[in-house]
Write a protein that binds this DNA or RNA. Structure first.
Lengths: 225, 225
DNA sequence: GTCTATATCGGGATAGAC
DNA sequence: GTCTATCCCGATATAGAC
């Protein structure tokens, strides 16, 4: 593995753990066991590290969401339950990937004001998240007579907001929860917006997920004892 | 008006406009037309300014939410429509107050990791927001036979998330919107979570609000022409 | 309370040897 | 590619006159 990749990995980890603002270039070098001068040889300051990490995140998220955005038919399974199962899996993978870059979602503004290309990229990702949520919602909540449900725009907006802000919000409410629980609860919270409209079969699956979640909480509590 | 109050006002304005991270103590002094030395006489660095501004926000938000949190009966009007009207007004005032301190909601983590007292205060405010949303939701969405609605916890959580994150999220989607529109849309978005459960009379009021919102957008567009 | 001038400190950038 | 050593600069803190 190349040094430059090591640098990006370590930087991302420190940003996630300690908060972007309180990590200096020297901190990253120290953690890696290389000299600040050497780090500067690979990346000219924190700025270029941020650009590189964001580009990495953008590539990986586009790989995930691209198919869904371009072909909404991906979510058109034949069985009723396949819709919500597929949505559940998709959101889990998406949220886990975002979690790897969670420092960014703590304060998107900070990096967006500094780097225009990050701002553009983030808006693009946000549009893709919006389309992904729209895809999910229109599959799970069909309108009357094949038409879109009248509340679909509102529903999509709420789900996109939840998807975008979950990683910043949940740690404030539940600071000590383990990562897997956080992701799982996030997916549930996003899907819960569709709950009032779900049919019986879909609702069963949703309730299975909820039960699984409560079971995870229980295991977590007993593990702490 | 005392100099120290001027300092807090100017600091808050600059933080909101340019982002907290990119405003230095000297910037604040320059904007006020006083010397950096004089500013340092009143507040020992940016840190104590942040503490003071947060304390101010906390006081004002507690004044707003205190009555609602302590006496949920505040929202128990006799007319059906009074519930949603009162909720609409309450959320509007609350969101407008939060808007005055919006720089904080762009990156709560940043200040929370630096100052433990801010972290504690913010969690307290978050719990009050949660209770406020719970109050609103339980009024608008009564369960069967006087019991709480089975989906009330989920609904409350979604509304609290929306209330907490709106000021950070909406500017990313609609960067150029005027402030009043942003607040109004935020209130609508929070209340929209209750829409699937609203009765006819309440739904009428909600639709009136939506119509008003679309009218505001139209006026905004024509004003730009 | 307010100013000017100066000191300090830390992160980031650079030079040159290996 | 990597190191050590040094320089630079911006933000903050301090000293002392008015």
């Amino acid at each position: 593995m190349k040094t430059s990749e090591h640098i990006l990995d370590t930087a991302r980890r420190l940003f996630n753990e300690r908060g972007e603002a309180s990590v200096t270039a020297s901190d990253i070098a120290l953690e890696l066991g290389i000299s600040p001068g050497n780090l500067h040889y690979h990346f000219k300051g924190k700025a270029s590290i941020h650009i590189a990490i964001f580009a990495q995140m953008q590539r990986e998220l586009i790989v995930l969401m691209g198919p869904v955005v371009q072909a909404p038919g991906l979510f058109s399974g034949t069985r009723v339950t396949s819709d919500i199962e597929t949505s559940w899996l998709f959101l889990t993978v998406l949220l886990e990937k975002m979690f790897q870059y969670r420092y960014f979602y703590d304060s998107p503004k900070t990096l967006m004001v500094q780097f225009p290309e990050v701002a553009r990229g983030f808006r693009r990702l946000l549009r893709m998240k919006h389309k992904s949520c729209s895809s999910i919602a229109s599959q799970l909540v069909p309108g009357p007579g094949g038409l879109p449900h009248p509340r679909l725009p509102n529903l999509t907006e709420a789900m996109t907001l939840c998807l975008s802000c979950w990683l910043a919000y949940d740690p404030l409410v539940n600071p000590t929860d383990p990562d897997s629980l956080r992701t799982h609860r996030g997916v549930l919270q996003i899907l819960s917006h569709c709950a009032p409209y779900l049919g019986d079969e879909q609702l069963d699956f949703y309730r299975d997920c909820e039960a699984l979640y409560h079971q995870m909480i229980h295991e977590e509590v007993t593990a702490l004892d």
